[in-house]
Simulated assay, not measured.
Amino acid sequence: MYLGAIEPLNPVLLQLGPLTVYWYGFIIGAGALLALWVATREADRLGFDKNIMVDLVLIAIPIAILGARLYYVTFQWDYYSKNPGDILKIWEGGLAIHGGLIAAVVTAIVFTKVKGISFWKVADIAAPSIILGQAIGRWGNFMNQEAHGDAVTREFLEGLHLPEFIINQMYIQGTYYEPTFLYESLWNLTGFAILLLLRKVNLKRGELFLTYVIWYSIGRFFIEGLRTDSLMIFDLLRTAQVISIVLIIVAVALIIVRRLTGQANKRYLEN
């Protein structure tokens, strides 16, 4: 193939006069809507008011996006302090999932406390939806040609048996790159399937969500080590890897402590 003929996919989905709709935002939005649909179906199945899930999502999503952007900008402050006009350009990428998750969890804790309902019950219902939304959202990175790994050969990508459109999109400014966005998407889809199966196991309340935290964090730790665009702490440690280790430790500790202290006194399928 003549490499000069390989053009990246257009990041713009629609141009309606002055309004530009980017694939990045569309894919993230589509992932959020599908995730909400999955969560409300499960809420219905459990006899839980699905409107509570809708209300929470309507509040949590914009706060999560803000948290994801602030997190990213904070760890890239050397650039954004010199280019403040770029801070709002989220369509160009730059949403850190950990920042979004932290903001969403804090929002959910406050929301459930105000509503007088169990945070852990809501978190368990939402857990498969969250990881499904993350799996879909990674394709926004694909459209922006970001969240990739080191330079590789075309033969390496072909050896992964990838479709042509993915291989071509991994050709960035004359070099092929490892599709780490795809690794994480597939890891998250696997996690989604596992969480759906664990629903039938009827774990202690809160443990489905904590299993999600552990599963996602394990995958993110290893995949982050392959990436070339990691946010860094003091130029020494990859931020996502540090956060992933902390989350795994905290999640495991919570499972143990909640069981030992009797806080996990109900199971997933109980009202």
Score class of each variant (00 low, 15 high):
A35I: 09
E224K: 11
T239N: 14
M170L: 05
Y216A: 07
L13H: 11
E158P: 04
F181I: 00
V38A: 12
E224T: 02
L66C: 11
I172L: 00
A103H: 10
F209C: 05
Y171F: 05
A5E: 13
P11G: 00
F222Q: 09
T112L: 14
A147Q: 07
F75P: 08
Q173A: 12
L56D: 05
S118N: 08
Q134W: 00
D124A: 08
V213D: 05
E158R: 10
W91C: 09
M53S: 05
I172D: 01
L189G: 10
A108H: 12
I214P: 00
H98G: 10
L33W: 12
I6R: 14
I59Q: 11
L260H: 08
L198E: 15
G116E: 04
F142I: 01
I102L: 10
V54Y: 00
I256H: 08
G140W: 04
V257P: 15
I97C: 04
I256L: 01
L237P: 04
F181N: 00
L195V: 00
W187S: 00
K200M: 04
Y216K: 06
G29C: 03
A123K: 01
A35T: 06
V152Q: 02
G85E: 15
G149H: 10
L237D: 11
G140L: 03
R69Y: 01
F181C: 02
R138K: 03
V110F: 14
L46F: 13
K113E: 08
T112V: 13
L203Y: 12
F111L: 03
K121N: 08
I256V: 06
N10Y: 09
Y171V: 01
A104K: 14
L9I: 12
E7W: 15
R205A: 10
L66A: 11
D55T: 06
V246I: 15
A103M: 12
F165H: 05
D124M: 07
Y216Q: 07
A135E: 07
G116P: 00
I245D: 10
W215R: 08
L269S: 14
L9P: 02
A32F: 10
L36Q: 00
I6G: 04
R41D: 10
P8F: 05
H161C: 11
E164F: 04
I109P: 11
R238L: 02
R267K: 09
L247A: 11
I218G: 02
Q169R: 06
Q169K: 03
F222W: 15
P11F: 03
F234N: 09
V250N: 02
E184H: 08
I97R: 06
Y183I: 13
Y24C: 07
D55V: 07
D229H: 02
N51T: 14
L226T: 03
F222D: 09
A240I: 11
A126W: 11
S217R: 01
V201F: 13
G159S: 12
A240H: 14
W139I: 06
I109N: 12
